[in-house]
Design a protein around this nucleic acid. Structure first.
Lengths: 131, 131
DNA sequence: AGTTGTACCCATAGTGCAAGTGGTACATAT
DNA sequence: ATATGTACCACTTGCACTATGGGTACAACT
């Protein structure tokens, strides 16, 4: 698996990592069950901070593209191929687009929408407290 | 109509103006059809920038609380009393809260939601272009 | 001439957040 | 000992947005 990171790229480093690993899986350059380099290893090889690599790995694991097994290392998930073609951000985008469109046609200013959004996001403390 | 602006207040100046004018209407200190001071006049009296006052007036007009008639001045809207008690931002808040909650339970990170939101907001150019 | 709302220009201060870097530390295993 | 993923802490850089200000200008009307 060949991974190339472009620091000049406008895309965040962790995002480049995510998409390249997904690509490698879709191109069958790595197969489900295959081991992936450790976070520290990859960070050293690509000259990245290990937290940047860890962030990419966490996103990939959340999407069931990879599977971390603690001290035993990280492996390509069994359903990696299917899950690599699904992009949560696309779904997110359309969902949000739809909501924004509704609010705007209700007469809301972009500025107002932004403020209401910021409020909603910081209210997570209140919502989580219910648990 | 007595308007007092508190620069020390954490609330934005234009927001203070909006709520105070609404209050004056709800308290029937000004009646529908009554003229309001001009933007420049009010800005001078309250020692505010005329753009700040204009912003407040624009919001009030959008909500049908006041009515601007160009060179003829600004007046209290006929339905001002009813419209003064409706706050769009509350409606906005619940609408957005609902959407955020959905996205979060779909597994989206707050960070991802923010980015998707920022994208959706800046895509307005594309959407308006369709017109 | 003077006034109305409005629409531009540019500028400032403050806030909030993303992204990345650095270091240290931990439990769990080989 | 050495390696794994993970979890903290603090920090810098850069960007985007809000709120506010100062100025100039316009068409339409009195």
């Amino acid at each position: 698996m060949q991974i190339i990171i472009d620091i000049e790229d406008k895309a965040p480093l962790f995002a480049q990592l995510v998409s390249q690993i997904k690509s490698a899986i879709l191109d069958e350059k790595v197969m489900p069950g295959d081991p992936l380099p450790s976070i520290r290893q990859l960070a050293t090889d690509l000259e990245l901070n290990k937290k940047t690599v860890a962030k990419a790995y966490q996103l990939l694991e959340r999407d069931n593209v990879i599977q971390t097994k603690g001290y035993r290392g990280t492996f390509v998930h069994q359903d990696a191929i299917a899950n690599s073609s699904f992009d949560l951000s696309v779904w997110l985008g359309s969902k949000i687009d739809q909501t924004i469109k509704t609010l705007r046609s209700a007469g809301a200013t972009d500025s107002e929408i932004r403020i209401a959004f910021a409020n909603a996001m910081s209210n997570k403390i209140k919502n989580n407290k219910i648990k």
